[in-house]
Write a protein that binds this DNA or RNA. Sequence first.
DNA 1: ACAAAAGTGTTTTAGCTACACCCATGA
DNA 2: TCATGGGTGTAGCTAAAACACTTTTGT
Lengths: 241, 241
Amino acid sequence: MNPEFIHTYVSVDCVVFGFDYENRLNILLVQRHVENMPVDSQKKLPGSLIFSDEDVDDAANRVMYELTGIKKMVLKQFKCFADPARASNQNDIKWMGTEYKHNIDRIITVAYLALCKIDHKINSSKYDTVDWHPIDKVPQLPFDHNQIINESLIEIRKWMETDFSIIFELLPKKFTIRMLYQLYSAVSEKKIDIKNFHKKISSFNYIIQMEEIEQNVSHRAARYYRFDPKIYKKTHNKLIK
Amino acid sequence: MNPEFIHTYVSVDCVVFGFDYENRLNILLVQRHVENMPVDSQKKLPGSLIFSDEDVDDAANRVMYELTGIKKMVLKQFKCFADPARASNQNDIKWMGTEYKHNIDRIITVAYLALCKIDHKINSSKYDTVDWHPIDKVPQLPFDHNQIINESLIEIRKWMETDFSIIFELLPKKFTIRMLYQLYSAVSEKKIDIKNFHKKISSFNYIIQMEEIEQNVSHRAARYYRFDPKIYKKTHNKLIK
DNA sequence: ACAAAAGTGTTTTAGCTACACCCATGA
DNA sequence: TCATGGGTGTAGCTAAAACACTTTTGT
């Protein structure tokens, strides 16, 4: 055996996006337990080592199921993080020791994007604390998790540009065009005129007008729409460039 | 230690693209040596296990240097392949044994795209045989290398769409607009009218007209152009969608 | 003269932008 | 009646598509 080659553990980490009622992107963080550390600083991205007979995609799906109780989530691998120093912090090494019962010196991780409707019930079998955090209020996290989140933002933007339909994974089943607009603006950071956005969106055949309209708003009530994935797939528009 | 977690080797594999004089995309394959196997079936993607103190990007750069002698190549990580069965073929296990002097049962790999001018001199310090293969004539390869190549094609297309300038990595310093058109067509598989393509390309300020024109062609000689990366960066056009 | 491709110009089409206008609702 | 946002219509601009036309060179 050649000792200079890496022989390591591999994990997956998931950046789970949600869109809250104040029009902010949020991500899911979980609590980790390390002795003698203030609770505040112990948030992390949900993740896990992968099993010896497991593919990374399967591991990511398992992490999402253990995290939320949801079986089929929209997931996308986006980058492998393998800086040799990414797991060299003493607290991180200590935590890996208690979590995985082993002395681990190096670990590489494969990062995934995941999308979740923020009103979906989170039913975690693994974590006692799972919380949404607005993207601009994410605390300092262990390992390179802050860097992973930063890069995930660029990635979700690209993803939406290549496949507009993923945006509906973050919205409720029925939504107003204003909600869609706010979400689009939060992700793409492009400024589009909302009137033109409205016109464009409502011209798409896969955006279905519903009977229902908003209640108790102090202005003209907006109509609800829904997304029809079948019609979208048939004509898979490139969309809103 | 929990034996159910993966503890594995990690490699990088590079899909190196070139564009030949018959307007075909090519990729670089190397020869591997396995006892009792016909030479023909022993091509593979260039790659290597990563070292214990090495990041994956560094490993990919090292592989490219050992492969070509070129220090700075345009490289892009695109996917981690980790199917538990990807290294279960007996020949592959045997080869890993002789190459890395170790019994390896599982290995995950991080795949990279690389771009190379096909007329660049290949000066490999590691491989005795390094050859270009037209993309539609790639033989059956070990591991999941054929699958990696298939996915790399989708990836290079996306890459060109998000950053048009990478196309010039595959062309000589001076090129005709026809050459650029042929390459663009080979990658994107979109059909654009060459006249309009010509007009559009020559309108870009980062495409610089040269004095020189083609010699000895049996029709009107085309002008040579060159790409100016500085001007491109200043105005980084989104480009040809 | 002809073939073949370079290179330019012109017309049409489609999509985006800006903005005006009317509608519905609560306060 | 006013403020706020929903929703529609239209005119103008610009980029892209279609295609005709001229130029250059070798045979």
